[in-house]
Design a protein around this nucleic acid. Structure first.
Length: 433
DNA sequence: AAAAAAC
């Protein structure tokens, strides 16, 4: 669930800009307008946005008080007519989901029983989370949503719901079988867009789906990260787009204490991991592995040691994945061992520790700082305290650890691993116990 | 050399 925007001090009124293209910068939000016709407005209240009454009711029903930083600048651009494309960068928890959700809801005609908006995410779990936000926000609109993910029943006739939220495989499949009519789609959203367009496989799929969108549709790309390599491609994917960036990168890791622990072997990593859970009082935590098998193995080992641990990865059946994540969200399980499947976007507020059992690497085995940021961002959300612990054990993982530390320019603290008392004592000094 | 993503 996205952060509820908090009451903030009064904003300074914007100076009217004259010369296109407009580049306007302030402390936290940076806006690049594609052309000067776009409104350079700031919406300090949801009423300012001209949202329909039934949508407003849903917004306030979710205890949203006023637009968040990114929403107050992005929404006037997203909602303006004629629609313009947007590339937006902001951490999850800053109101990004609500921003594109409001755009989709606003552009739907509920009396037309055909898909009018399509939102894609990189994994089932995130698509479900987005659908829940859209359903809640659109509760009073009569707008219906449809989950287009693997593992769901295959539709036998054309879907007549208004907003399709899903993952690329099923969406493509539905297009092929003519159960997803794209003719009336006016908004096309990619969440975790850098991942959606860059990733081998996902990128091709997203582009194929993109080509099925009507030429007039509004393309919206949102992510917490946009590495330089994918920026140019994003601009081809969403041509002539306005760009908006929330400068919160430092903030996002600021609340998270980052440690690493020097291990001798994979076995030693497992030993240290279980020791941590015996030594520390941890609320809820997530352990990330690079392989599904490792996730299962870690869960098995820790379970054998008497910890309540479950694993979640893409090889599991959809129903099982749903059950595992629900139990974790409900606090029924305290430790979730997973792969990159839930590294992005998933909001679980109670998570106060993230362990990288394996340091994140890309498909070439090179350090993947974006994934690192997304992973550790599962904790310390919305100003809460969070701890991340990286387990390092061989020259390769050392290299990755160093590269990630260099990339963020933030010291990652070494925790001694010689004996358990020392670990406990050391972490206690950093306020971790 | 992975994970994810359809049936």
């Amino acid at each position: 669930m996205e952060e509820k925007p908090q009451a903030e001090a009064e904003e300074v009124q914007e100076e009217p800009e004259e010369e296109p293209p407009v580049r306007e910068t302030e402390a936290e939000v940076e806006v690049h307008l594609h052309n000067s016709d776009s409104p350079l407005a700031t919406a300090t209240s949801f009423e300012d946005l001209g949202l329909k009454e039934d949508i407003l009711k849903g917004v306030y029903g979710m205890k949203f008080v006023k637009p968040s930083k990114i929403q107050e600048r992005a929404l006037p651009l997203l909602l303006s007519d004629p629609p313009t494309n947007m590339i937006g960068q902001s951490q999850s928890g800053t109101g990004k989901t609500a921003a594109f959700t409001l755009t989709m809801l606003s552009r739907i005609n509920p009396s037309e029983d055909t898909p009018q908006a399509l939102c894609l995410a990189p994994a089932r779990e995130l698509a479900i989370q987005i659908k829940e936000v859209v359903d809640e926000m659109g509760r009073y609109t009569g707008i219906r949503t449809y989950l287009a993910c693997g593992g769901e029943p295959v539709p036998r006739s054309p879907v007549r719901d208004h907003i399709i939220i899903g993952t690329p495989g099923r969406v493509q499949d539905m297009m092929k079988r003519n159960t997803l009519n794209t003719k009336a789609i006016s908004v096309f959203v990619l969440d975790e867009a850098d991942n959606m367009i860059d990733q081998q496989g996902l990128g091709d799929q997203s582009m194929r789906i993109r080509r099925m969108m009507p030429a007039s549709s509004q393309v919206i790309l949102f992510s917490a990260t946009f590495p330089d390599e994918v920026r140019a491609y994003a601009q081809r994917f969403a041509p002539n787009s306005n760009m908006i960036t929330l400068k919160a990168e430092e903030l996002s890791v600021e609340g998270i204490k980052q440690f690493y622990m020097d291990c001798r072997s994979k076995e030693h990593k497992l030993e240290i991991l279980t020791a941590l859970y015996s030594l520390l009082t941890i609320g809820q935590s997530m352990i990330f592995c690079n392989h599904r098998d490792t996730a299962d193995e870690v869960a098995r080992t820790m379970t054998a040691q008497g910890h309540t641990v479950v694993s979640l990865h893409g090889k599991m059946e959809a129903a099982e994945r749903d059950r595992v994540l629900k139990d974790f969200r409900d606090g029924k399980t305290k430790v979730l061992v997973s792969t990159n499947v839930i590294a992005r976007g998933i909001d679980i507020l109670q998570v106060n520790m993230v362990v990288n059992m394996d340091l994140p690497v890309d498909l070439h085995g090179l350090p993947d700082p974006e994934t690192y940021l997304h992973r550790i961002g599962r904790t310390g959300r919305f100003g809460r305290k969070g701890v991340s612990i990286n387990l390092v054990h061989d020259p390769m993982s050392w290299k990755v650890m160093n590269a990630i530390q260099d990339h963020f320019g933030k010291q990652i603290i070494r925790v001694p691993t010689d004996n358990y008392d020392e670990i406990e004592e050391f972490l206690r000094r950093y306020g971790v116990h």
